[in-house]
Design a protein around this nucleic acid. Structure first.
Lengths: 200, 200
DNA sequence: GTCTATATTGAGATAGAC
DNA sequence: GTCTATCTCAATATAGAC
């Protein structure tokens, strides 16, 4: 059992909130220190740099996604059910870690251009492969349409899922469960009104 | 006829490319000046600040969208056709102005938090209303489903459309026309394989 | 319209006392 | 583990000559 220094985690939580709201680059270490209640120099006792804080937040987040996706794939469900499960797992996580989710969505460019984020990128790539595997299998066995490229569909649904953590969604009482339903409904069945006799 | 100072436009084009690639905040005025081929101080003869360059780029872009959306709505087509037309117009514009498109997608937060961008935000709001009008009308007259909130659907399709300008899309020969088809297909008809007898 | 030179501020990071 | 004090550098922006 590794020790989990409460102070470190506290700083990361505060930093994540600021990074998510203002962006990593626009957030100053002084702002983080103020929010934590210490002076800026003190942060450097816990972390070597601001970027290292961001890296750690994102790596934890991506590791959590990867683990949950692995669980989903291990169940061996059919493509449609597996896709719904990926959506549900993602939205669940974005509810648990809204700040890290927003960072993941908003700071892709920062990630790519900051040296030393290679491990974060590798985790992101593995997450992406989970989606593609499910989608391609669905196309292969006839559950999904073949006239939309899997990689295109992947981008569409991935962005829809992770953007849920971005900004404010209409209606405060639009619970995440309902959002998951909306996303799976739209992406699988389409927004056009169902014709009579068509399966839901 | 207002004069269009070529030098100004040239600077804006160079700046847009950098803003789109690295972000507004991460782009320095020296980088812009280097790319243009002048020294940084010279830029201030044309623009009062870096933010003003970004504001002007985005305002032009949003004005262009608004005009095209107005044209689409003026045609008075049915909801499904109008929605396809909005998608097509957006993707067309994102092809013509890829840098501004990327900025619009990536710098929403910067826009909101930079004082003096009120006019840009107002134009963005009007653009949003065009989508909502079409979607709500479609729900009202039965063309679209009623079990997904219009504002939720709006966010999903809006993000899908504008994200097309972000990053690289799979397959270099995936022409924008095909992407428009893919988006309208997925969002209207869904990704699930069509059942026999269902209209395309 | 561009250059040279520089003012000014803001931010990341460090050293060493407590 | 935090504070005080400060270094250093980078970046926006300005003033005035050419």
């Amino acid at each position: 059992m590794t020790e989990a220094p409460a102070r470190r985690d506290e700083i990361l939580a505060v930093a994540a909130e600021l990074f998510a709201r203002k962006g990593i680059k626009a957030t100053t270490v002084r702002e983080i220190a103020d929010a934590v209640g210490v002076l800026s120099g003190s942060l450097y006792h816990h972390f070597p740099s601001k970027d290292e804080m961001a890296r750690e937040i994102l790596l934890r987040f991506l590791t959590a996604i990867r683990d949950r996706y692995t669980d989903v794939l291990a169940r061996g469900e059919g493509p449609a059910r597996a896709l719904r499960a990926l959506v549900a797992a993602s939205l669940q996580l974005s509810r648990e870690q809204p700040d890290a989710t927003a960072m993941y969505q908003n700071e892709l460019r920062y990630l790519r251009e900051t040296p030393g984020f290679a491990d974060v990128q590798e985790a992101a790539a593995e997450v992406q492969r989970a989606w593609l595997r499910v989608i391609e299998q669905g196309v292969a066995d006839g559950a999904f349409r073949h006239d939309v490229a899997p990689r295109v569909f992947h981008r569409l649904i991935r962005d829809a899922v992770w953007l849920s953590g971005r900004g404010h969604w209409p209606d405060g009482d639009d619970a995440p469960g309902q959002l998951a339903d909306a996303i799976t409904t739209v992406f699988l069945d389409g927004f056009a009104a169902p014709v009579a006799g068509q399966p839901t």
